[in-house]
Design a protein around this nucleic acid. Structure first.
Length: 115
DNA sequence: GTTGTGACGACTT
DNA sequence: AAAGTCGCCACAA
């Protein structure tokens, strides 16, 4: 039986692979880690992620391309700043997943979109 | 062991 | 467009 922390580790691994200047979503990350409907697991893993891992946590947005962190948290503004620093543009508080969404090589192969 | 909650998301009203 | 329902996983009480 896999322990909870093992599942978190699988999520962290996927997040670590998000390229600079691109973003992914809770649902897609979970899916790539082996949890088809585990979007919430991604959120849980992200909250529990040790800073030591230096994960690109800011590149994780919700399925609408919006920052998922609560309004009251200062991390929210920090996430946006970090993304903009990488060239990710916000329009009406939203990021175009069409343009910045991270596509895997496999996806590129299946859907014929750029990697 | 049970229950409620949440940095979520797909579906259905 | 907006709100409700349900699935999923970890965690706190």
């Amino acid at each position: 039986m896999a322990r909870a922390n093992d599942n978190h580790a699988r999520i962290w691994k996927v997040i670590a692979g998000i390229p600079r200047g691109r973003v992914s979503t809770y649902g897609r990350i979970a899916e790539r880690a082996g949890f088809p409907r585990g979007a919430r697991l991604t959120a849980q893993a992200l909250r529990a992620a040790p800073a030591k891992l230096k994960l690109p946590w800011h590149r994780v947005l919700n399925a609408q391309g919006r920052i998922a962190i609560p309004e009251n948290s200062p991390s929210r503004a920090r996430q946006r700043a970090l993304l903009e620093r990488e060239g990710v543009a916000f329009v009406n508080g939203r990021v175009s997943l069409e343009r910045y969404g991270w596509q895997t090589s496999l996806d590129a192969m299946l859907w014929r979109v750029e990697d």
